[in-house]
Amino acid sequence: MFNLFLLQALNGVQFGILLFLVAAGLTLIFGIMDMINLAHGVLYMVGAYFAAAFTALTGDFLLGLAIALPAALLFGLVLEFLIFRHLYERDHLDQVLATFGLILILNEGVKILWGAAPMSVPIPDILSGSIPLIGPLRYPFYRVVIIAAGLATAVGLWLLVNHTRVGMLLRAGAVNAPMVSALGVDIRRLFMLVFGFGAMLAGFAGAMVAPILSVEPGMGDGILILTFVVIVIGGVGSVRGAFVAAILVGLVDTLGRTFGPIVLRSLMDPSAASQTGQTLAPMLIYILMAAVLFFRPSGLFPAKGAAA
C-alpha cells in the first residue's frame, strides 16, 4: 500500500511539474496583460510536435529538444507579432474568440503537417531504465528527469522573478501594468518577452512529455483546462501560486484516481465504490477549485492583493 502511494505521489508530482511549466507562462500573460489566452495549450502541443519532428530529423532526442526550445520561442514571438499584440487592448470576448480560432487553426495545422495519427518519440538510451527507490521499488528514470528539469526551471524562474530587474518589472506589471508603463518602461516589449518566454516554457513541457505520451492533435486542449484550474487556485499573475497549485492539482488528481475507490471501499460495497470512485475522481480537482474559490475568490496567492 505504501509503495503504491509513493509511486503515485511521484507520478502526481511529475504531473504537477508539467502543469506548472505550462501554467507559469500563462499566469503571467493573464496577470500582466489582463488577457485571456485559450491558445496556450496548443503551444504545449506545438512544443511536443517540434520535439518529435526534430528528434526524427536529427536522430537524437536531446539534440531535438535543444532545437525545439528556440523554435518554440520563435513560434511564440511570431504569434505575438501577428495576432496577440493586436488583442491586448480588446475586451475579453474578442480575446476568447480570436484565441479560440487560433486553437482550431493550430490543431488542424499539425494534422495537415504531420497527419492525424499519434507520433511517438523514443526515450533516449541514456535517460531510459529505472532507478531504485526503497527496497525492490523502482521508478522510471525519465520521469525523475522530468521532475528534476521542472524543479530546476522553477528555481530559475524564482531567481528571475525575484532577483532580477526584468523580474521586478514583471511583478510590478502583474500588480499594475498601466503604472509601470507610466513610469517609462516599454510595456509592449515586456509583454512580448513574457509571451515568447511563456510559449517556450509550454513548448518545453510538451517536448519533455513527448517520449511518455503520444504526440497528437488536440493534446493541448485537456492540459489547457487543467492549467486554468491551476491558475485559478494559485491566483492569476502569481508564479509562486502557480507552482503550489500545480503540485496540489497533480497530487489530488493522481492520488484521487488511485485511492478514491480504495477509500470508498471501506464505506460502501466494492462494486458501488469502484463505480462512484471512477465517477468522482475526475471531478476532484474541480471540487478543490470550487472550495478554494469559495473561501478565497482570488486564489491562494493573489498577485494584485485585495484589489483584484
Binding site: M35, V232, T279, Y286, A290, L293, S298
Partner: peptide, 25 residues
C-alpha cells in the same frame, strides 16, 4: 464570486467537470 478572466476560466472548468462526469458514467 469572481470577474473577468477568472469567470471565463471557472465556467470553462465547471463545464469540463460535467463533461468528465458523463465520460465516466
Amino acid at each position: 464570486r469572481t470577474k473577468g478572466v477568472y469567470f471565463i476560466m471557472i465556467t470553462l472548468a465547471f463545464g469540463q467537470m460535467a463533461y468528465f462526469f458523463m465520460v465516466s458514467l
